[in-house]
Amino acid sequence: MPYQFTTGDIKSIAKRLGLQQINVKKWNGIDANGDFLQTYIHDHGDGVPILSGTAKQQAKQMGFKNLEDMYDFLINKKSKR
């Protein structure tokens, strides 16, 4: 099943993990497990879809097993890793 994310989704995931926007594209921070995470988000607008390859990289950079894992985290607001 293909998973589609928007810029707003990725920013929301990053914020819930404890990442902060460092500069125009770079977000980083320490998550609840004490792991340093760093990713890059092009802010084309919250509703704009993320490229499929970019979403895969962002999932990896934010410590998710795959896109499904990141999607589950997005839709389950209480979910913790």
């Binding site: 890059y40 499929s52 970019t54």
Partner: peptide
Amino acid sequence: IDEDADGNGFTISIDELLIHGE
């Protein structure tokens, strides 16, 4: 190189450095 499934662009990643560009 990862070409977007909907043809909207390209993502290039360097896995060994946990970094990408699009």
